[in-house]
Every structure is written in structure tokens, then in C-alpha cells.
């Protein structure tokens, strides 16, 4: 793997949550987690019924929601940072994957994967583009394919572009929200293989919200969220 993707040995960040509370604007508590520890490099699945607060947890972990308490990634307490510092932290440390890919349809695969180069310091841009190209190549979208607009891609290919985008900046944390929900079974299986392989190879901390048992079963650990609280914490069935 190291031969395939040079420089992929990213060390993941550990997660430490304490007294996390996310509330709706009118005060209703959407999510409350008193304590949660995830070691660096762990693969964690989050399951639970719709509306339970899984995605809320994921977006809170990315610093995209206002919340009370503490979300520590490594030594950084995300909730103590202002909006711009959180954005900087995300750019540096968190890759995100979404259910419906969220790609710029008019750009080619290479430009989508290297999207964050557009707002990185000039000196980082070339390296980030090169890393994005390597990720795409590993995911089977290298060479001429990377120059094709993603509008011509299948769902599976699009999601692989999204993975390459999330991992292009060697972020130590990868957050995925239902990454296989828009894919057929075969495409989903291939994507799960790619995602898990890449995360393990790089040592990335991967947290996935999913209803897909095939994906959840590949995680080290599975959290169950119900009614805005942590209802279960188990090791995944092999």
C-alpha cells in the first residue's frame, strides 16, 4: 500500500468528547453525549434510526454546529475555536464525504479532488494537487479519466472522487455521512473496500454514519445513537 500511495502514512487524531450538547434554536436538545473516547486511527461506525442524531453528531465533530461542551481532536478543543479557526482546522485535519457526493459537476475529477488547493496557501497547492492525483490513481480514476468531467461518471466513480478529495490533504480524520446510500450494491462494496483500505493504510481516524450493515461490519467499533443520546457502543461483528 505504501508503495501504491507514497506519503499516505497519516497519523490519525484521537477524539475525546465530554458534556457535548447540541440544541435546536428553540432550545430542544438534539444530541447529548456526556463522554466518548475514540483512539487515533480507529474506524468507528455510527448507526441508529433516522432522526436519532447521527448526522448531528458527525457535523458537530466537524465543528459545523454550535454546541456546548468539549470536542477534542488530539489537543485541539474544537468548540473553543471561532468559526474561522474551525474552518482552518477542518481544512488541515478533517476530510468529509457526503451521501450525494457534493461534487462540482462542471469540473473534472482531478479539479474536484484537488478542490481545497484553491483556498490553500500558494506554496501548498502543487503538493495538494499531486496528492489528489495519487489518491485518484489508487481509486482507479487516474490518468485520462481524471481529466473527464464528473458529470460523465457513475455514482460509484463520483463517490471515489469524493474520497480522493477528502483524503487529498492527508487529513488525519475522515468523517463520512452515508457514503454508500446513493450506490448500488456492487458499487457500494467496492467503495467500502477502498475506504477501509485507505483509512487503515494511512492510519486515519474514520467515523462513518451509515445504515449499510456491510459498511458498519467493517468498522472496529460501532456506536448506536438513539433519541439524541449514545445508546450503544460495541465492537463490530467480524
Amino acid at each position: 500500500m505504501g508503495r501504491l500511495i507514497k506519503g499516505l502514512l497519516t497519523k490519525g487524531l484521537a477524539l475525546s468528547i465530554s458534556d457535548l450538547r447540541v440544541s435546536a434554536p428553540r432550545g430542544r436538545v438534539l444530541l447529548s453525549i456526556p463522554a466518548l473516547e475514540v483512539p487515533a486511527g480507529a474506524l468507528v461506525g455510527i448507526e441508529g434510526p433516522s432522526g436519532a442524531g447521527k448526522s448531528t453528531l458527525l457535523y458537530a465533530l466537524a465543528g459545523l454546529l454550535e454546541a456546548e461542551g468539549h470536542i477534542r481532536w488530539g489537543a485541539e478543543d474544537l468548540l473553543s475555536l471561532g468559526a474561522e479557526k474551525r474552518a482552518r482546522f477542518r481544512a488541515r485535519s478533517i476530510g468529509m464525504i457526503f451521501q450525494d457526493f457534493l461534487l462540482f459537476e462542471e469540473l473534472n475529477a482531478g479539479d474536484n479532488a484537488a478542490l481545497s488547493a484553491l483556498f490553500r496557501p500558494r506554496c501548498d497547492r502543487a503538493a495538494l494537487r499531486a496528492q489528489a492525483a495519487e489518491r485518484l490513481a489508487f481509486l482507479g480514476l487516474g490518468g485520462d479519466i481524471s481529466n473527464r468531467p464528473v458529470s460523465s461518471f457513475s455514482g460509484g466513480e463520483r463517490q471515489r472522487v469524493a474520497i480522493a478529495r477528502a483524503m487529498a490533504s492527508e487529513a488525519p480524520v475522515l468523517l463520512a455521512d452515508e457514503p454508500t446510500a446513493s450506490l448500488d450494491r456492487a458499487a457500494a462494496d467496492r467503495l467500502i473496500d477502498d475506504l477501509v483500505t485507505l483509512a487503515r493504510a494511512s492510519g486515519t481516524t474514520l467515523i462513518v454514519v451509515s445504515h449499510d450493515t456491510a459498511l458498519i461490519s467493517r468498522m472496529d467499533r460501532v456506536l448506536t445513537i438513539r433519541d439524541g443520546g449514545l445508546a450503544g457502543d460495541r465492537k463490530a461483528a467480524a
Binding site: A62, L64, A83, E84, A87, R88, F89, R90, A91, R92, I94, M96, F98, L102, F104, L115, S116, L118, F119, R165
Partner: peptide, 16 residues
């Protein structure tokens, strides 16, 4: 707005 939100999620500065 989704593309704009995506940029924010990826860590793009507000100024970008």
C-alpha cells in the same frame, strides 16, 4: 448554496 456549504465544510475560509 450547497456548493457554498461544501466549501465551508471542506474548510474554505469565509473570505474565499
Amino acid at each position: 448554496h450547497r456548493q457554498i456549504a461544501l466549501l465551508r465544510a471542506l474548510g474554505a475560509p469565509a473570505r474565499f
